[in-house]
Amino acid sequence: MPIATFSEKIAQTLSTINYGEEPAELYEPIRYMMALGGKRIRPLLTVLAHHLFEDEVDKVLLPAAGVEVFHNFTLMHDDIMDQAPLRRGQPTVHEKWNANTAILSGDVMLVKAYELFFGVQPIHLPVILKLFSKCAAEVCEGQQLDMNFETRTDVSIPEYLKMITLKTAVLLGFALELGAVLGNASEEDRNNLKEFGIKTGIAFQLRDDLLDVYGDAAQFGKQVGGDILSDKKTFLLLTALEDSNDMHRTELQNWLGKTVANSGEKVQAVTAIYDLLDIKTKTEAKINQYFHEALAHLEKVNAPSERKEYLRALALSLMERTS
């Protein structure tokens, strides 16, 4: 079955979810958020993981949709905290309505995500709810760490990697483990798929960090250098601070927190320091490290190699993306 067929099934399932009707001010923002689209990577991971062990995938479509609804709930609340004006090129929910509406609509999305798991076989439900609750709490922990880092000047690279693991990667791991559980996979296979997702997720976020500085603005879909302008603690910045000599470290620190009339000047200056320190190559090496670790876990999964190829190809597409 072509991977496009799985994606079509997911899109069809998402289009049929009824979030509620009244009051309209509560439910319309949810429909708006879900209609903004996105890559739908997380539900696809659930379906592909299940497909490793069983042919019939229709029974996992609703729980897979639950993963996507939860993901969009986190985005809705993240946008409020980040005061982001746009999401996928359109006004964010809190901009189109208001922050209170976005908070409440997001809360309903979290409730709906749980509800979408209820249709699984009773034998699997306690395990899935426990795994999901743990994952959901970890995503919140990651978001809090990310906010903590905004005011800290001593963030370490290991701390940053832990933060992106929680904020981004654990949900990919859960999406894969969910599919494995519903496919009656062994505990060893479940764990390897989870680790495949986590390592891929870390590499994915590091790739995002890299594209923010070195991506093509036309393809990236947002302002290149945005992380530099907002003084975001990324792998690139932290590596530069760690690897630089006193002169370059002082120069970098002088740019942090500095408001400039010409934003391009700051981006150009910080990028020039990155170039001197070969930060792009070092980041690419770290991305490749996590990607190869991810593939090693996928290789250990006891499933047909032709079915594992779907997941390998999907992970590769995430690593090679330009937007």
Results as ranks from 00 to 15, higher is better:
P2W: 09
P2D: 15
A4Y: 04
T5C: 04
S7L: 14
I10C: 06
I10G: 05
T13R: 09
T13C: 13
I17R: 06
Y19P: 03
P29G: 06
Y32M: 06
A35G: 15
L36P: 10
L45D: 08
H50E: 04
F53D: 02
F53N: 04
K59Y: 11
A64S: 11
G66F: 00
V67D: 02
E68Y: 00
V69S: 07
H71W: 08
H71T: 11
T74G: 04
L75F: 12
M76K: 02
M76W: 13
D82E: 10
Q83W: 10
P85L: 10
P85C: 02
R88P: 05
G89N: 11
T92V: 08
T101N: 07
I103Q: 12
L104S: 06
Y114E: 12
I123L: 11
L125N: 08
V127L: 14
K130I: 00
C135G: 00
A136L: 03
A136Q: 08
A137M: 14
C140G: 10
E141S: 14
G142M: 07
G142L: 05
Q143V: 00
T151C: 11
T151M: 11
D154C: 03
M163R: 13
I164N: 13
T165I: 06
A169R: 00
L172N: 03
L176P: 01
L176I: 00
V181P: 05
R190T: 01
K194Y: 15
K194L: 14
K199G: 03
L206F: 05
D208N: 06
D212S: 02
Y214R: 06
G221N: 09
D227A: 05
I228Q: 10
S230H: 15
S230D: 13
K233P: 14
E242F: 00
D243V: 15
N245R: 09
R249V: 06
E251D: 13
L252F: 07
Q253F: 09
T259M: 11
N262T: 09
G264M: 09
V270C: 14
Y274K: 04
E284G: 04
K286Q: 11
P304R: 02
S305L: 13
L316H: 08
L318G: 10
L318A: 08
T322F: 03
